[in-house]
Amino acid sequence: KLATQLLVDLAEGCHTHHFNSLLDIIEKVMARSLSPPPELEERDVAAYSASLEDVKTAVLGLLVILQTKLYTLPASHATRVYEMLVSHIQLHYKHSYTLPIASSIRLQAFDFLLLLRADSLHRLGLPNKDGVVRFSPYCVCDYMEPERGSEKKTSGPLSPPTGPPGPAPAGPAVRLGSVPYSLLFRVLLQCLKQESDWKVLKLVLGRLPESLRYKVLIFTSPCSVDQLCSALCSMLSGPKTLERLRGAPEGFSRTDLHLAVVPVLTALISYHNYLDKTKQREMVYCLEQGLIHRCASQCVVALSICSVEMPDIIIKALPVLVVKLTHISATASMAVPLLEFLSTLARLPHLYRNFAAEQYASVFAISLPYTNPSKFNQYIVCLAHHVIAMWFIRCRLPFRKDFVPFITKGLRSNVLLSFDDTPEKDSFRARSTSLNERPKSLRIARPPKQGLNNSPPVKEFKESSAAEAFRCRSISVSEHVVRSRIQTSLTSASLGSADENSVAQADDSLKN
């Protein structure tokens, strides 16, 4: 292990032709098999893994070397290190390495390699500790012929580059190093199909959405987006994914797998022009299946994007999809995704031109529960009313008269009656009930004795009459309010007539 670390330190600071010789020695160290011998017992696995620490030291050392060589000349050094790393990870899946030390190597290698970024000039870069990406002036992410390196360097940008540029090249004859992302992409596909350690798979799935944002990485080298989509959909639809995973937390289920895969599918929607129609349908189907899991909100957001990006695919699945959405409970976490999906859909009339009455009724059935102001915040309630109004205007004229009683009944049950079921009123009724029952229970537990009763009969009569009056008032709060309003209006009217009579009498006395 110490000798391997010494080789790594020497290679990191070497800029001459001896660098390749040092890498040859490190490569021989990495070539050791990580498969346990067949006769190895389970209690000896930890000791055997400790004997392979030099392999881990070599791989982690290459990660440090690549981070240094990416910004220094010659660029061919970075290319050689990158290829060695990718080849080593491929061996893991070729020979099915399952030892804990092998999983640790893959975890740290993917953690580093999935941080690679590219700008519009195809320059590769890595983020620093502050998250700012520094791009290399010597390494690009696409394949290029050595003699055409300078031509590639002087080509115009596709868009303004992001991030601070690296140091300027030493001279005009500098050759750019090619670090094609397709090599890593193929290893990522192998990981999605064969990885057995949940920690490694979770890391890859968590980092892929951010990497897919940099389309330069994908399009400048032959990366098959179709295969990526197929691998992701197979993970969700195939039963073998959960069987092969180990190291998963207790209670791990298909729902947890959906939570990890759906963000990658959402990021892949922007590549729909490069996906086969069959793959697009598979993607939409997987998102529909996710509606029954805890990732339902993410799936609804993804389907909203699909309705804009892939209208030809979503239009066929939309009638059944809208009916499925009615089975989702009206909760605060689902309110905004569902209502925004319906609001977006209302502005795309070509998608729902074939809707029948059942689909329009489903839209109103989804939106009406969110009009309850005692359960949802003001934004959700306003958005629900907006969706109902928009869809009522957009639905066909023959359907409107049939939906009017349905909508008014839903609004009455969710908006008007919600004020009668407020917690304050319920607590008031509970308190009044307890007050009504309390005197009775006290009389049963403690019967009054005439000799020891010091309270006069008049006081008892007053208290009983007050309790009886309170019971009468607490029967119905709404009736009490109505009666008080009527009494107030009658009182004001009587006072007004009394004032008029007094004024008339005063005038008569003055005349006399």
Rank of each mutant, 00 (worst) to 15 (best):
S49E: 14
A50E: 12
S51E: 10
E53L: 07
E53Q: 06
D54C: 06
D54R: 00
V55N: 01
K56I: 03
L60N: 15
L62W: 00
L66E: 02
Q67G: 06
K69I: 00
L70P: 01
T79H: 06
T79A: 07
T79Y: 09
M84G: 03
V86I: 07
V86F: 02
V86A: 05
S87M: 08
S87H: 12
I89G: 00
Q90T: 09
L91S: 13
H92N: 01
H92T: 00
H92G: 01
K94D: 11
S96Q: 14
Y97H: 02
Y97Q: 02
P100A: 09
S104F: 12
R106M: 01
L115H: 14
L115Q: 10
L116H: 02
A118M: 02
L121H: 10
H122R: 05
L124K: 01
L126F: 10
P127V: 07
N128D: 12
K129G: 14
G131T: 03
G131R: 05
V132P: 06
V132R: 11
R134G: 04
P137A: 06
V140G: 05
D142A: 04
M144Q: 08
M144N: 12
E145K: 09
E145S: 09
E145T: 14
E147I: 12
G149R: 10
G149C: 13
G149L: 10
E151C: 12
T154E: 13
G156F: 10
G156Q: 12
G156V: 13
P157L: 10
G163M: 13
P165Y: 09
P165M: 12
R175F: 10
R175Q: 11
L176D: 12
L176R: 12
G177L: 03
G177K: 05
V179G: 03
V179A: 07
P180A: 04
P180G: 03
F185M: 04
V187W: 01
V187R: 01
L188Q: 01
L188N: 00
K193C: 12
Q194V: 08
Q194I: 08
E195W: 00
S196G: 11
D197W: 01
D197P: 01
D197K: 01
W198R: 00
W198L: 03
K199M: 11
V200W: 00
V200H: 02
K202S: 09
L203W: 04
V204D: 00
L205T: 01
L208F: 03
L208Q: 01
P209Q: 12
P209D: 04
E210I: 11
S211P: 05
R213N: 08
R213V: 03
K215A: 04
K215E: 02
F219G: 06
F219L: 13
F219Q: 09
P222Y: 04
P222Q: 08
C223T: 04
C223R: 03
C223I: 03
V225D: 00
V225A: 05
Q227E: 12
Q227V: 07
Q227W: 03
Q227A: 10
L228R: 01
L228C: 02
S230Y: 05
A231E: 12
L232R: 00
C233W: 03
C233P: 01
M235G: 01
M235C: 03
M235N: 01
S237K: 07
G238P: 03
T241I: 12
R244K: 08
L245R: 02
L245F: 13
R246M: 06
G247D: 10
E250R: 07
F252C: 10
F252Y: 04
F252D: 03
